[in-house]
Structures are given as structure tokens and as C-alpha cells.
């Protein structure tokens, strides 16, 4: 009986090699970021740190500033994220007239529908829940850091105190209580939106044409969508 189960797991496992199971439930969560509304104040980063006890210099969410300038030549792209944007952004040594466009882009775990990190975890310590959230079992993780290498968005970090990998959970403990993630809660301008795919405010933004995902060429199917960002964001 046990052997049969063993064979069964192997069969399923080898199947999983080709088919990564996407979220089962119909009401999966999605996250929408409107870059135009982000003012780069860093309160999301602070709130995330307080809520999830993120260690120093590690970020579950961070804010990047994109400044595209042109001085007659083709676009120059400057990207920065000092301290993950936690303490705001300083002045830049650029001529205001040369700036073509400048904006802030909050980043976080994309909770991909085809997560490359889940695919490479050797011990099944990270998985995708029915709600489409990618979680880590910190007491199961062996700390091989393979998932960090596999994540194209740099969302995972190594917790040097606990010696395991950690990442954004979309505040799983909050959203399962019907609350919104901490970063969404504290955003003063509503640049971050969170909800089920069927929710009205999500549906409204997802019907917009300028919505996009990051690194679509990798076919990870992220569930974080971006509005009003330029081509230079990936």
C-alpha cells in the first residue's frame, strides 16, 4: 500500500514536471499598482516591515524610481531604490527640462500563476495556495536558496537570522481575515489596489488597455498588474 503510494507520488511528481498546477479556486486574488498615483513616500515599506518583521536591509516590497531623460540623444534610463524607498527619495542631479518622464514603481512578489520558485524547491517547502498566493513553510525550508535564484523579480530574500528564505505573502494572515495587505492599507494615495479577480474595482482597472505585467516573456503569469508604467520597467 505504502509502495503504491510512493509510486503514485512519483507519477504525480513527474507529471508536475510538465504541468505546474495553477490556482484552483475561481476567486483568486490579484494586485494592481497604479504607478501614476505612487508618490514614493515609503510608508508601504515601513508598514510591511512592522507587520511582517522583515529584517533590516531586506524588503518584501520596495519602491523604485524611474527617471527617463533625454538631452538630444535617445532616452537615458536611470533607476534607483535607496533603502528600498523606505525613507523616501532624495534630490537628483538632473536638469528638470531634460526629464521625459519620471515615476515611482512599487515592487513586490508577483505571486505568479506559474511560479518558477515553486518549480525548483527541492522539498516542496513553497507552494501555491488555492487563493493563488505563493507561501513558504519556514520550518520546512532547507535554505538552499535555489528559489531565490529562480525568481526573476528579486522578490525573495534570505533571512540571515532564521537561515531560511522568506518573501511577501500578500499578508496572508490579513487577507484570510478579510482585510487588505498592510501595504495596501497604508497607501495614502491608493496607488496599490488589492482584491479578488471578480471585485468591481479590480475588474474596472483590468479592463483598461494600458495595464501590463512585468517580464511577460518569461511566461510566469504574474498576478500583480501595473498601470501607467513605461516600457523601461521590468
Amino acid at each position: 500500500m505504502k509502495r503504491r503510494e510512493f509510486i503514485k507520488t512519483i507519477m504525480i511528481g513527474s507529471l508536475a514536471f510538465f504541468l505546474i498546477k495553477p490556482a484552483k479556486s475561481k476567486d483568486i486574488f490579484v494586485y494592481v499598482v497604479d504607478s501614476k498615483k505612487c508618490i514614493g513616500c515609503g510608508s508601504c515599506v515601513k508598514a510591511c516591515r512592522a507587520e511582517n518583521h522583515v529584517p533590516e536591509r531586506k524588503y518584501r516590497t520596495w519602491v523604485e524610481r524611474y527617471v527617463v531623460t533625454s538631452n538630444g540623444e535617445l532616452e537615458n534610463i536611470f533607476v534607483e531604490s535607496p533603502n528600498g524607498g523606505e525613507f523616501g527619495f532624495g534630490d537628483l542631479d538632473v536638469d528638470e527640462n531634460e526629464i521625459l518622464r519620471a515615476y515611482f514603481v512599487p515592487k513586490l512578489c508577483m505571486h505568479c500563476d506559474k511560479p518558477p520558485c515553486v518549480k525548483v524547491c527541492p522539498v516542496n517547502a513553497t507552494w501555491i495556495t488555492e487563493e493563488g498566493v505563493v507561501l513558504i513553510d519556514k520550518s520546512h525550508c532547507i535554505g538552499c536558496k535555489y528559489c531565490i535564484q529562480a525568481c526573476p523579480y528579486g522578490a525573495r530574500y534570505f533571512n540571515h537570522h532564521e537561515k531560511v528564505v522568506d518573501k511577501c505573502t500578500w499578508c496572508y494572515h490579513r487577507i484570510m481575515r478579510g482585510m487588505r495587505p498592510a501595504c495596501v492599507t497604508v497607501c495614502p494615495t491608493g496607488a496599490r489596489m488589492f482584491g479578488k479577480l471578480q471585485d468591481e474595482h479590480i475588474q474596472k482597472t483590468l479592463r483598461e488597455r494600458n495595464i501590463r505585467i512585468l517580464k511577460p516573456e518569461l511566461n510566469t503569469r504574474p498576478k500583480v498588474f501595473y498601470e501607467n508604467v513605461g516600457w523601461e520597467v521590468w
Partner: peptide
């Protein structure tokens, strides 16, 4: 932290 004029900060927001 929020209200200073900063590159990238949108006046309309």
C-alpha cells in the same frame, strides 16, 4: 516626505 516636490512625484496626485 510626501509633500516635497520630488522628481517622479505627480502634481495631480
Amino acid at each position: 516626505g510626501c509633500h516635497k516636490a520630488t522628481i517622479g512625484r505627480d502634481n495631480e496626485t
